[in-house]
């Protein structure tokens, strides 16, 4: 079931299960689902009303959006670890550093390698879309303090702009340069630095002082956005160009 995986389309499928197994499996899963629904129905109310607690302490968090307050102040330990998880994935996928890429810029126009004539409509659309998406990302980051939005949404929108740019075919990213490493670890670095400084001054790791909470949250969010956007874009670019002809990309 998990040992014989298909990687190509229309391969001979010897890993398929027999009909009897499928029917038994379906029965087991339906039984599981029924018992889960029964469990939720009989569980009743959620015991402690966390929503009221969050609403009560919202003034102390420095931001007005309860979700951002939970993510970056009340439970910022989770977010710290999440940024670390993303960095681990990025390290796994990161291309090896090339000595030839010393003076390269991160984003450059690709004229030589592309055999296709880039689509003029797409390129003209991108000219408007990419700056707009980056602007929208900045807006989401800023507005996340008091209305829906925040670091993850902003990072996703910016990464989406990068994906569109790399699908346009005219621009390429140089993932081998060392700036990429810096950008993708910056979020975690700033987060840990803020936590450590805070621990040094106030004695608690991630409990921000009330006066500086909103500044610290914005600082952490900004660098986290940069990191997450870089990492998400790196994931896409690496998956897209893993098997490209050598010379363009190291693989």
């Amino acid at each position: 079931m998990f040992l014989k995986l298909e990687f190509k389309e229309n391969q001979a499928t010897s890993g398929e299960l027999s009909t009897t197994t499928r029917v038994l499996l379906a029965i087991a899963i339906v039984a599981l689902g029924t018992s889960l629904i029964y469990a939720i129905l009989s569980a009743g109310k959620a015991p402690p009303d966390l929503a009221a607690q969050v609403a009560e302490k919202l003034d102390l968090s420095g931001v007005g959006n309860p979700v951002t307050a939970v993510l970056l102040n009340f439970r910022s330990y989770d977010t710290l670890l999440e940024v670390a998880v993303l960095l681990v994935v990025a390290v796994a996928i990161m291309p090896p550093r090339l000595s030839s890429s010393a003076g390269k810029r991160f984003l450059f126009v690709n004229d030589t390698h592309n055999p296709h004539v880039p689509d003029p409509i797409l390129l003209n659309l991108l000219k408007w879309l990419v700056p707009l998406a980056i602007l929208l990302g900045g807006y989401l980051l800023w507005t996340g303090a008091y209305s829906p939005g925040g670091a993850f949404q902003a990072a996703a929108v910016i990464a989406g702009a990068g994906v569109a740019l790399s699908l346009g075919g005219r621009h390429k990213f140089a993932w081998e340069i060392s700036g990429v490493r810096l950008a993708s670890s910056l979020g975690l670095l700033v987060f840990v630095t803020v936590a450590a400084t805070n621990a040094f001054i106030t004695g608690t790791t991630l409990q921000y002082p009330i006066d500086h909470a909103s500044t610290l949250i914005l600082l952490v969010e900004t660098f986290t956005t940069v990191s997450i956007a870089t990492i998400l874009l790196l994931l896409f670019a690496q998956l897209k160009s893993l098997a490209d002809p050598p010379g363009e990309m190291h693989q």
Binding site: L140, G150, Q153, G160, V163, L232
Partner: peptide
């Protein structure tokens, strides 16, 4: 709403792009 924005950008957009690539 926060989750909706993230899902639209990441769950639908980026995951789809990753899977297609």
């Amino acid at each position: 709403w926060d989750v909706a924005i993230a899902e639209a950008a990441i769950g639908a957009g980026l995951t789809g792009a990753l899977l297609l690539a």
